[in-house]
Amino acid sequence: MASEVQITLDCDDPAGLSAFWAEVLGYRLLDPPEGFESWEEALVALNVPPENRNDLSALVDPDGSGPRLLFQRVPEPKQVKNRVHIDVRAAPGLEGDARMSALEAEAERLVSHGATRLKRYEPAPPLGAGWIVMADPEGNEFCLD
């Protein structure tokens, strides 16, 4: 039996962080339960207290090929560097200056949506293609690759 993969991100603001990652990856918010027009309508009908309505948010790949992303509120802030991170493949198949130009353009776009640029790694042939390390609005590191 094949397993499905879900990537879970602990955060302070699930709705805000899921909106950022939806923009980055072209994902969309998981549809509300059947019979409801919106998540707000569903949460009210399910008697979820207002203070708990931003405890979870989930994104799905519109094509159905990528993993689901789940954002869950936790009480503690991020403490240290991620041991696992997301690589955003912003320049697949490109090399050299063309690759780095594409990565720079994507970095600039993501900064306009709340990301922070951390460091650029220059190409180091034969295997090092170059990449840019970024952080999402809550400080979780990811790479533009």
Rank of each mutant, 00 (worst) to 15 (best):
E76G: 07
N47I: 08
L56V: 13
H85N: 03
R73Q: 05
L29V: 12
S112C: 00
M100Q: 11
L17N: 14
A42Q: 09
D55W: 03
S65V: 15
L70A: 09
D31V: 12
F71P: 05
G35N: 01
L69V: 02
L127M: 12
L127C: 05
D87W: 00
L43Y: 13
L29I: 10
L56S: 00
G26R: 13
H113D: 01
S18T: 01
G93C: 08
A90Y: 08
R83L: 12
P126C: 08
E4F: 08
G128K: 06
N54G: 01
W131A: 14
W21I: 03
P32E: 03
Y27P: 08
W21Q: 04
P50Q: 11
P14I: 07
R120V: 10
D31P: 12
I86G: 04
E40I: 13
L46H: 14
V74N: 03
A45Y: 11
N140D: 01
K78N: 01
N140L: 03
D10C: 11
P137Y: 12
E51D: 15
Y121T: 10
E41R: 12
L103N: 05
E76R: 15
V88C: 10
F142C: 06
F20G: 05
D136A: 13
G130P: 14
L127K: 11
E95P: 02
R120W: 04
L56G: 03
V74G: 07
G64W: 01
A19Y: 07
L110Y: 10
G128S: 05
R109V: 07
S101G: 14
W39Q: 03
A15P: 00
P126A: 13
P32N: 02
K119F: 11
S57C: 15
D61Q: 08
S57Q: 12
A19E: 12
D13L: 01
E51I: 10
E141N: 06
L94D: 04
R99G: 05
L69P: 01
S57F: 02
A91V: 01
Y27H: 08
H85R: 01
F36R: 06
A107Y: 00
E104R: 15
H85E: 08
P14V: 07
E141K: 09
I7Q: 09
P32C: 08
W39E: 04
Y121C: 00
V74F: 03
D97V: 13
R109K: 14
Q79C: 03
N52H: 08
I7M: 12
P77Q: 05
L17D: 09
E34H: 06
L94C: 03
N52G: 01
V5E: 01
A19C: 07
D145M: 10
D12W: 00
S112F: 02
D61I: 12
V60F: 05
P125G: 09
G139C: 02
S112H: 06
W21L: 13
R53Y: 04
R28H: 10
T8L: 12
E40P: 04
A58V: 12
F142V: 00
A15F: 04
D87H: 07
P123S: 10
A19N: 09
L56W: 11
P125F: 08
E95W: 06
E23R: 14
L103M: 11
G96T: 04
P137K: 10
G96N: 06
E23H: 14
S3H: 11
G128T: 03
A98N: 08
Q79V: 09
A90M: 02
R68W: 02
R120G: 03
L17Q: 15
V88F: 15
N82W: 00
S57K: 09
F142M: 02
S57M: 06
E104K: 15
V133L: 10
A135Y: 07
R89H: 02
